[in-house]
Simulated scan of single mutants.
Amino acid sequence: MTSGSTTATSPWFVRPPSTGHPARLFCFPFSGSGASAFSAWPAAIDGVEVCPVQFPGRENRMAEPHYGTYEDLAAGLVPPLMPLLDRPFAFFGHCAGALPAFETVVLLAERGLPQPDCLLVSGQPAPHHASGDPMLTMGESELRVELESFLRGRGIEPRSDMIDMGMALLLRDHAAAGRYRRAEPVVVSCPIVVLHWRDDPDVSLDQLEGWRQYSDAVDIRVVDGGRYDFMHAPDGLRKSLTSWR
Score class of each variant (00 low, 15 high):
220 I>H: 10
107 L>K: 07
59 E>G: 02
176 A>Q: 01
157 E>C: 03
223 V>W: 02
92 F>S: 10
204 S>F: 00
179 R>P: 07
171 L>D: 03
224 D>W: 02
235 D>Q: 15
19 T>D: 06
187 V>E: 03
228 Y>D: 01
99 L>F: 12
77 L>Q: 00
238 R>K: 11
64 E>I: 08
4 G>Y: 01
16 P>C: 04
231 M>D: 02
227 R>N: 02
199 D>F: 05
163 I>Y: 06
173 D>Q: 04
98 A>P: 03
101 A>M: 09
203 V>H: 02
22 P>R: 15
119 L>Y: 01
202 D>S: 13
157 E>K: 09
101 A>V: 07
48 V>I: 09
143 L>V: 10
144 R>K: 06
23 A>Q: 09
6 T>V: 14
209 E>G: 04
164 D>I: 05
50 V>L: 06
227 R>E: 11
64 E>G: 02
170 L>A: 00
163 I>G: 03
84 L>T: 10
212 R>K: 15
33 S>E: 05
225 G>Q: 11
122 S>G: 10
113 L>N: 05
82 M>N: 14
165 M>V: 14
239 K>Q: 13
84 L>Y: 12
32 G>I: 07
112 G>K: 08
183 A>K: 12
71 E>S: 04
17 P>C: 04
133 D>N: 15
100 P>Y: 08
35 A>G: 12
241 L>D: 08
95 C>L: 13
123 G>L: 11
41 W>S: 06
166 G>E: 10
182 R>H: 10
206 D>N: 05
6 T>I: 15
239 K>V: 11
1 M>S: 14
183 A>C: 08
127 P>I: 01
85 L>P: 05
238 R>N: 12
138 M>P: 01
120 L>H: 12
71 E>C: 06
208 L>C: 05
121 V>I: 02
1 M>E: 09
124 Q>R: 15
207 Q>N: 00
222 V>N: 09
96 A>V: 12
199 D>G: 13
129 H>Y: 15
86 D>S: 11
207 Q>G: 10
223 V>D: 07
137 T>K: 15
157 E>M: 09
198 R>E: 11
109 A>F: 10
197 W>P: 02
35 A>I: 03
197 W>E: 14
154 R>Y: 02
181 R>I: 13
157 E>P: 12
126 A>K: 00
7 T>K: 15
12 W>V: 00
125 P>V: 14
